[in-house]
Design a protein around this nucleic acid. Structure first.
Length: 491
RNA sequence: GGCCCCGUCGUCCAGCCGGCCUAGGACGCUGGCCUUUCAAGCCAGAAACGCGGGUUCGAAUCCCGUCGGGGCCA
């Protein structure tokens, strides 16, 4: 693409909040691109906004990417030849670059007040000109005058001086994009407090770090000509740009907090698997094969190309993510599932399981696995095995009908005589019960399910019974009978 | 308001250097089968080329216009 340079891409989150799924998707595409081309994937921390930045958000970024399996070759925590990869450690560098631009005549100190600038913008608006049309170098902004005023204690921002030239570039996903000179104002690169703006810091870093491809959200598309102008002024090599379609909420707006969970953390903690999130994200704006939506990292790497990325925005659909999570839940190795089950159950119960409990859970785990969509579904599904049950009212009323007591009583008798407490023997006893009482499975067995689990929704009955100690199962059936009798007496 | 981007089922993705498209797959939805509940699975179904012109024997695919949506700046 850009000569024979080794691909170097970056993702540059701002640590002002939890890692956003939009950033995750951008990171995924950058990572796939880097891996596809044997390149370098870099995580840079764009923390120029020191007031709003917090180290715990950096930790969130780092742990989030690790969780997803997006490993990086340079950047925060892993280091590399470019220092800490945190912009807050490079303010001197940005000021130095700004000074150089001033010396070159490509930037200037601007002492005008906010009010004055607003007037210029208002004027442009009235005249239906681009908003920054009149934001140009004013008279008396020469270096000598500026130095004098600065020395007198006046405040000034530093603006990049637009050379008055249209800027066009070839975007890998969008094709030719062009901005007229009038559309690009003399944008600020250094605030009056000396801190760099995004445009400056990001561009300087991209140059200094040798970034070859910038793949980022479409929201930055209109900033790109500014970055190109800075890059050219500094004699840097222009990276290849790829502006990724934005992620939308169901209302067709840029995905944001008001749409609910937009942080990766929420999904991590909400019971989603990293491979499902990885896979689902890969389906937003890209596809490996329309007939095969379930794919892993190696397949994705082998097929990925930024040029194949969709131009139009994608709506983030939690339903489909949930379905995909279920796909991965069912396909995972039993051993891994059992480990997840133990963790989920312990979390749900708020205590550790002992050896016997673990083996009982392991016995039922494959049947729970078939039914669980989220890892957080497991605890509630297995709760009846380890703690007292509470009856779901609706379930109770639904199944505890006319024949229920008879079925429970008969089941209790038959189950008392089961020798070896296993699913096969339990099934035989309960089938005999059905025959003896002339009941169908629905009428005969649903009451037992509610009696032992509290709910009419549970893993299969025989295995659920098996996973319970026999005496506990019998006691629960007895308790249900007693409750029915109590209700009959009261009614 | 200015500039820029986008426009195939409700949603995601395929098709887009024209005919194989009576537009394909997936999620969701509806109905059915299976079935001890719930899932899963299987089968079936509803569901889209924003609109208008043009080019062409033929357009989702090319061109123009229009409408709509979004992003950025304010």
């Amino acid at each position: 693409m850009s000569g024979d340079r080794r691909v170097r891409v970056r993702i540059a989150p701002s640590p002002t909040g939890y890692l956003h799924v939009g950033n995750v998707r951008a990171a995924l595409f950058n990572w796939l691109f880097a891996r596809r081309h044997g390149g370098v994937f870099i995580i840079r921390i764009d923390d120029t906004d020191r007031a709003r930045s917090d180290d715990r958000y950096i930790e969130d970024v780092v742990s989030g990417f690790r969780w997803l399996g997006l490993d990086w070759d340079e950047g925060v925590e892993v280091g590399g030849p470019h220092g800490t990869y945190r912009q807050s450690d490079r303010f001197d560098r940005y000021r130095e670059v700004a000074d150089r631009l001033i010396d070159m005549g490509r930037a200037y100190h601007d002492f005008r007040s906010t009010e004055e600038m607003e007037e210029l913008r208002a004027r442009a608006r009235v005249e239906k000109k681009p908003p920054g049309y009149y934001v140009r170098r004013p008279p008396g902004s020469d270096p000598d005058t500026a130095r004098r005023r600065l020395g007198a204690g006046e405040q000034a921002v530093v603006r990049f001086s637009n050379p008055g030239r249209a800027v066009g570039f070839t975007d890998v996903v969008r094709g030719e994009v062009r901005f007229e000179a009038d559309a690009i104002d003399d944008f600020v690169i250094l605030r009056s407090d000396g801190s760099p703006t995004y445009h400056l810091a990001s561009t300087v870093d991209d140059i200094d770090y040798g970034i070859t491809h910038v793949a980022r959200g479409e929201d930055l598309l209109s900033s790109t000509p500014k970055h190109i102008l800075i890059t050219e002024a500094l004699g840097g090599e222009r990276p290849v740009y790829a502006h990724l379609p934005l992620l939308f909420g169901p209302d067709g707006r840029k995905l944001s907090k008001r749409h609910g969970d937009t942080s990766l953390r929420a999904y991590r903690e909400g019971g989603y698997l990293p491979e499902a999130v990885f896979n689902y994200m890969g389906l937003l704006g890209w596809s490996l094969d329309p007939d095969n939506e379930v794919f892993g990292r190696e397949e994705a790497i082998a097929a990925f190309d930024l040029a194949d990325v969709q131009k139009s925005p994608a709506v983030f659909d939690p339903d489909k993510l949930g379905w995909m999570n279920g796909v991965y839940m069912r396909s995972m190795a039993t051993g891994r599932f059992t480990d997840l089950a133990v963790a989920s159950v312990e979390e749900d119960l708020g205590r550790d399981l002992d050896g016997d409990e673990r083996s009982r859970l392991a016995g039922l785990a494959p049947l729970i696995q078939e039914r669980a969509k989220l890892t957080t579904d497991i605890g509630p599904a297995a709760r009846f095995l380890f703690s007292d049950i509470t009856y779901d009212d609706k379930a109770w009323r639904k199944v505890m009908k006319a024949d229920a007591r008879r079925a429970l009583a008969a089941a209790r008798r038959m189950l008392e005589n089961v020798g070896d407490w296993n699913a096969a023997n339990i099934e035989k006893a309960l089938r005999d019960m059905l025959a003896a009482e002339s009941l169908n499975p629905r009428k005969g067995w649903q009451p037992i399910r509610v009696a032992i689990t509290g709910s009419n929704i549970s893993p299969p009955l025989f295995e659920s019974l098996e996973a319970l100690p026999g005496e506990v199962a019998l006691a629960r059936i007895a308790a249900a009978i007693a409750r029915l009798d109590l209700q009959a007496g009261a009614g």
